[in-house]
Write a protein that binds this DNA or RNA. Structure first.
Length: 340
DNA sequence: AAGCCGGGGTA
DNA sequence: TACCCAGGCTT
C-alpha cells in the first residue's frame, strides 16, 4: 500500500533520460548532473551533452577539456573528471557494469549513484537514499536524530520497503515525492499521497524532520585577478590546477591577496604568467559564495601579451564556449566588459 | 567523522 | 540579501 501511494508520484514529469527503453548511459549522466544540482539548471546541459556525446563510447573517446566545457557553470567539476574516467574504464571492460556492487568500483560512483543506475537502468533490486529519500523517510517514520543519523537510518530501513521487482519505480517515486511534495521547507502535506501513513503529518511538525543543520562559518578568501587582453581581443586564461578551487576549468590569472594590496597581488599573478608590470585598471570586486567559503575577487584589467603554455592560453571571447569555465569567471569577464 | 568541492533556488 | 541544499572524495 505504501508502494501504491508513492507510485502516484511517478510519471508526473517527462524527462529525457526516463524514456523507455532506458539507456543506462543517459540514466548515469543524468544522475551525475543531478548531484547537488536541480533539474531546471542541468536540463539544458544534459541535452547539449547527449547531443555531443550520444554514447558511452563517444564520451570515452573525448578529450577531458571538451567534457569540462559541457559542464561549465554546473559546479563540482570533479563530477566531470570522474564521469570521463569512469566512461573510459567502462569501455575498457566492455561496457557499463550492470550491478550496484560493480558500478561502485568506478570513479564517481558512490553508494547513491551506483544504486540509482543499477535500479533505474538495470532493474536491480537495490534501495537508495538521497537527500529527498532521507527526508521522506524521516518524516514518514519519525526518525529522530541529526541529519547524518537520519541518513544512516534511512539506508538501514529503505531495503525493507522495496516492493518486489519494482525497486526502480519505487526509488524514483520516493525521490519525486521528496522533490515536489515532501519539500525541505513548507512541505505540501495536504497533497501527499502518503498522508494516512505519515507519522508527522498529523502533528504538523514534518518541518522538524530532519532537524535543520547548524550554519557552518564561512571563511573569506580574497583573490586579486587580472583580465589581460591581447590586440586581437582575446583574453588570457589560466587553467586551475588540481588541488585548486575550480580545478580543471579556466580562470583569470589570480593571486591570493588576503591582507595585501590587491593591485600588487594582481601584478604578481601576471608576473607568474610572464607578464611584466602592465598598466592595470581597477574593475571593482566580484563575489562568489561557495559552500564553505566566501570568495572575493579584486578585479583588474589591462592589455598585454604572454607566451602561451599548457595551462596558459589566449582565448577569443567568441571561443569561450569551447573550454570549461566557472560561473566565477563569467562574472569576472562581465565585470571587465568582456562578453562571451 | 569531518572537511572539501560550485552554484542556484527560495524566503 | 541571507539562507538553504547535498553526493563523492580525501584526509
Amino acid at each position: 500500500m505504501l508502494l501504491n501511494s508513492a507510485m502516484e508520484m511517478r510519471t508526473s514529469v517527462s524527462l529525457p533520460w526516463r524514456e523507455e527503453p532506458r539507456d543506462p548511459y543517459r540514466v548515469w549522466l543524468s544522475e551525475v548532473m543531478l548531484q547537488q544540482t536541480r533539474v531546471a539548471a542541468m536540463l539544458p546541459r544534459y541535452l547539449a551533452f547527449v547531443e555531443r556525446f550520444p554514447t558511452l563510447e563517444s564520451l570515452a573517446a573525448a578529450p577531458l577539456d571538451e567534457v569540462l566545457a559541457l559542464f561549465s557553470g554546473l559546479g563540482y567539476y570533479a563530477r566531470a573528471r570522474h564521469l570521463h574516467a569512469a566512461a573510459q574504464a567502462a569501455v575498457a571492460r566492455g561496457g557499463l557494469p550492470r550491478s550496484s556492487a560493480e558500478l561502485s568500483k568506478l570513479p564517481g560512483f558512490g553508494p547513491y549513484t551506483a544504486a540509482a543506475v543499477a535500479s533505474l537502468a538495470f532493474g536491480e533490486q537495490v534501495a537508495l537514499v538521497d537527500g529527498n529519500v532521507a527526508r521522506v523517510l524521516a518524516r514518514l517514520l519519525r526518525i529522530p536524530g541529526t541529519a547524518a543519523e537520519v541518513r544512516a537510518q534511512a539506508w538501514e530501513v529503505a531495503p525493507s520497503l522495496l516492493p518486489a521487482g519494482r525497486a526502480g519505480e519505487f526509488n524514483e517515486a520516493l525521490m519525486e515525492l521528496g522533490a515536489t511534495v515532501c519539500k525541505p521547507r513548507a512541505p505540501s502535506c495536504e497533497e501527499c499521497p502518503l498522508g494516512p501513513h505519515c507519522q508527522t503529518r498529523d502533528g504538523g511538525d514534518a518541518d522538524a524532520f530532519p532537524p535543520p543543520k547548524t550554519a557552518p562559518e564561512r571563511p573569506v578568501i580574497v583573490w586579486a585577478a587580472a583580465a589581460v587582453t591581447r590586440e586581437d581581443g582575446s583574453v588570457l586564461l589560466r587553467r586551475h590546477p588540481q588541488g585548486e578551487l575550480f580545478a580543471g576549468t579556466w580562470g583569470l590569472p589570480f593571486c591570493d591577496a588576503g591582507g595585501g594590496i590587491p593591485r600588487r597581488s594582481a601584478r604578481q599573478a601576471l608576473e607568474a604568467c610572464g607578464i611584466r608590470a602592465p598598466a592595470l585598471r581597477s574593475r571593482g570586486e566580484v563575489r562568489q559564495t561557495l559552500t564553505h567559503r566566501e570568495l572575493r575577487v579584486a578585479l583588474f584589467s589591462g592589455t598585454g601579451h604572454a607566451r602561451e603554455r599548457d595551462d596558459l592560453r589566449f582565448i577569443a571571447p567568441g571561443k569561450l564556449g569551447s573550454v570549461g569555465l566557472s560561473s566565477l569567471l563569467r562574472k569576472c569577464l562581465r565585470a571587465c566588459g568582456i562578453e562571451g
